[in-house]
Amino acid sequence: MNSTSDLVVDSYEEAVVKNIVIVLLGVIINSINGMFVVTFLANPIFSKDSRYILYIHLVINDMIMIFVSVTLYVMSYVLRLLNFPFCCMLLILGTTTFMISPLNLAGMAVERFIAVCKPLHHYQICTPQRTYIFICFLWCIGVIPSLADFSILLSTQPSSFQRTVVYCYPPIVFPTKLHKDRLTYSQIIYMSLVWFIVIYTYCNVMFTAKKASSGNSANKARNTILLHGVQLLLCMLSYLTPVLDFILISLFPVHRSKINFLTYLLTNIMPRLLSPLIYGVRDQKFVKKMKEHFICKFCFLKIAP
């Protein structure tokens, strides 16, 4: 997760503009996602469907990630140096939510696979209780890389380091080769697993759709899993940030700060809006309930004395 600005000092005007843009986008994204959460909570029918439970967990997870990322970005300008324990807490939360997003998408793909390929067992396997257990399992898996980083830090740095103030930027807080190796291997393992699940479920659902005499539900599930693939690509854009930074800064070194800002914006912030939005808007049932809820709220506020 690239959550802080580069360490190049910007002019006062440029720093203000960047922070206003980032904070404004963060508020807009979390407000839109918050509408999805309110719609889910206001309609009990969604809380009984594992598909919507997993979806709203993805939305909440991305809201937390946006909040942490924007907080770290602003703090990198306002405070520059943070207490090590507070910085670690933010980095662990941000990294954990970052790792959970693709895993959640894999879970959503599996749920659609079971609904189409094992329809008689779907309501036995994908119960709300089991879905919440699965979400807890995702958090346990997602936090492992962060705890590994923290453990490596404790074993390689003196205890006095924990009482210092630091630039709250992952490569600075976790600088050793062990941290870099952990980052590389965990990303390869996690993303390979997720892509395998998405491709496997898509192929099986596609095969089922071809066999079925009436394949409308299977075709919809196939398109949904394909959409999960698109969402996964959006999540993976953040992996391209270092590559884009390296290429663009090599070509335009005098614009290093602007390049870092734009790549952070395009690969870390915007995908967190598009990923939940394209899935939520596509679901007609969810959109209908959302319109009904907010139109009723608007009418109530309008007629209230």
Rank of each mutant, 00 (worst) to 15 (best):
M1A: 14
P171T: 09
K211Q: 12
E14P: 00
L79K: 02
P171N: 11
R80H: 14
S192Y: 01
L273D: 02
R272L: 10
I225R: 00
L232M: 04
Y77E: 13
S160A: 11
D245N: 15
K288L: 06
H293F: 05
L227R: 10
R51E: 04
M191G: 09
E13D: 06
H57E: 15
A106V: 05
L24N: 06
R112E: 06
M89S: 13
K289P: 05
V23S: 14
I133G: 09
T95M: 10
I278V: 14
L301E: 08
D181L: 00
N268P: 00
I125K: 00
V116N: 07
T156A: 10
P253Q: 03
I20G: 06
K210D: 12
M206L: 15
I197Q: 05
V21F: 04
D6C: 12
S31R: 05
M89I: 07
I197M: 05
D283K: 02
L227G: 10
L103G: 11
H255T: 10
V16C: 06
L25R: 07
L277G: 13
V205W: 00
I92P: 06
N216V: 09
L237E: 01
M89L: 10
P276M: 04
L251A: 10
L79E: 08
M89V: 08
I53W: 00
K180D: 12
